[in-house]
């Protein structure tokens, strides 16, 4: 599997190099598409990981909503990092910063209820 990913990556690098001289847009589109295809190839493995996480929580009765929150945060982090790196590739650093900022804000919003439960637990202890 790793060979397939490596192969696609190398071929995409060579192709984007050749097309960079000819037309810039095709080169950046080739690199974007290579990233997308590599991630599509990895989807079944990510599905396996998330299913294990959920079974893991079901087995030894960890409350399920924390695991769900964790998986959601993972998804947001992955998506924002993916788009930010694509934007950085195309040379748009400011857009990449904004995308990452948006991802951070959304993760904070999701994690808010967790902070509340944490604070309540701590105040109960004191």
């Amino acid at each position: 599997m790793i060979y397939k990913i490596m192969g696609i990556g190398l071929i995409a690098v060579f192709l984007s190099l050749t097309t960079k001289k000819i037309s810039k847009e095709a080169a950046s589109l080739v690199s974007i598409l290579a990233g997308i295809i590599i991630v599509i190839l990895l989807l079944p493995y990510i599905r396996e990981i998330t299913e294990n996480l959920q079974n893991f929580s079901a087995d030894n009765n960890i409350p399920n909503n924390y695991i769900k929150l964790l998986i959601k945060v993972l998804g947001i982090g992955f998506l924002s990092e993916f788009c930010a790196s694509v934007a950085k590739d195309a040379g748009e650093n400011s857009i990449a910063q904004k995308i990452q900022f948006g991802g951070k804000v959304l993760i904070m919003v999701l994690a808010m209820p967790l902070f509340n439960t944490l604070i309540t637990i701590i105040t109960d202890l004191l």
């Binding site: 696609i8 984007s16 050749t18 000819i22 095709a26 080739v30 295809i37």
Partner: peptide, 20 residues
């Protein structure tokens, strides 16, 4: 989904053809 590699070639080819 190993169709992906052909798509990369197609896109590079279209880019080159349009430039020509």
């Amino acid at each position: 989904m190993d169709i992906g590699i052909d798509l990369i070639f197609k896109i590079a080819a279209i880019g080159i053809v349009t430039a020509i």
